[in-house]
């Protein structure tokens, strides 16, 4: 960086740019957008210093602060329910897993019960966790992860109990 001059403290400029980045993040700009704006601010500061060596530090900081309010809105973030369908599949997998687990408990045949328990955990719990993770921004995804984890916990508890 070429910010530093006799009158301009590089640290103060860097601090202003760091604050600009924080402000942009808080306004919903993603990392790419924030990086582009911050890089633009740096480039402009360098140009301003190169074009006008008498420019003051306070003028530069005020200029950087002006970058914090672009006229173009931040790119819309994916809404929380965008992954709703995946979340629903995750939830359905968890429910199927629970149903298989219940069948395993009710089974009179220990071998069949064990096989069902394994199937319920691997299929239901596994799918619920994977699909739930993919749709973790949605409420159903979060619930599916919790249910899938509970299924796995059940399996471990039953394996641990002699």
């Amino acid at each position: 960086m070429t910010f530093g001059t006799e009158r301009i403290d590089t640290a103060h400029i860097e601090k202003a740019i760091a604050q600009l980045e924080q402000s942009l993040r808080a306004s919903g700009y993603d990392l790419d957008e924030m990086g582009s704006i911050a890089q633009g601010a740096r480039e402009h500061v360098e140009e301003l210093i190169a074009n006008d060596p008498s420019v003051s530090e306070s003028e530069l900081i005020a200029f950087i602060n002006g970058f914090s309010d672009p006229e173009i809105a931040a790119s819309p973030q994916p809404p929380a329910n965008e992954h709703g369908l995946t979340g629903m599949f995750a939830l359905a997998s968890a429910l199927v897993g629970i149903a298989i687990m219940i069948a395993a408990f009710l089974s009179a045949d220990p071998d069949l019960g064990g096989a069902l328990m394994l199937l319920g955990t691997l299929l239901g719990g596994g799918l619920a966790c994977v699909l739930g993770f993919l749709s973790r921004r949605s409420q159903t995804g979060k619930i599916a992860i919790a249910m899938g984890a509970a299924l796995w916990l059940c399996l471990f508890v039953f394996l641990a109990v002699p």
Binding site: S36, G40, A41
Partner: peptide
């Protein structure tokens, strides 16, 4: 004439 930050966002989008 527009804010410099707006210009850089636009340039980033054009690049993207």
């Amino acid at each position: 004439s527009m804010k410099e930050s707006t210009l850089y966002l636009l340039l980033a989008r054009l690049q993207k």
